[in-house]
Amino acid sequence: MARVIVDVMLKPEILDPQGQAIARALPRLGFSGVSDVRQGKRFEVELDGPADEAALSDVRKMAETLLANTVIEDFTIHVES
């Protein structure tokens, strides 16, 4: 049993109006010193077996095919310990 985390973020050049709205709200709430916020998605993928090379390769395929749209999004994968 292992848990693999896939983080999906809009590419840096893609406008993120939701992140901008959050960034604009923060000073109103008294949080200062924030220059930017980007919003993304986190997927927690529970595996039946260990997070070996084959399993991680499958998760990568999942991310490329479905979890992220690589036209506008980047993803990173890591195993949660």
Binding site: I14, L15, P17, Q18
Partner: peptide
């Protein structure tokens, strides 16, 4: 059609939200 890659690019959240 964009998600299926029959057309290039993507549609994202409206700029004004």
């Amino acid at each position: 059609l964009c998600e299926a890659h029959l057309l290039p690019g993507a549609l994202t959240r409206n700029q004004g939200l």
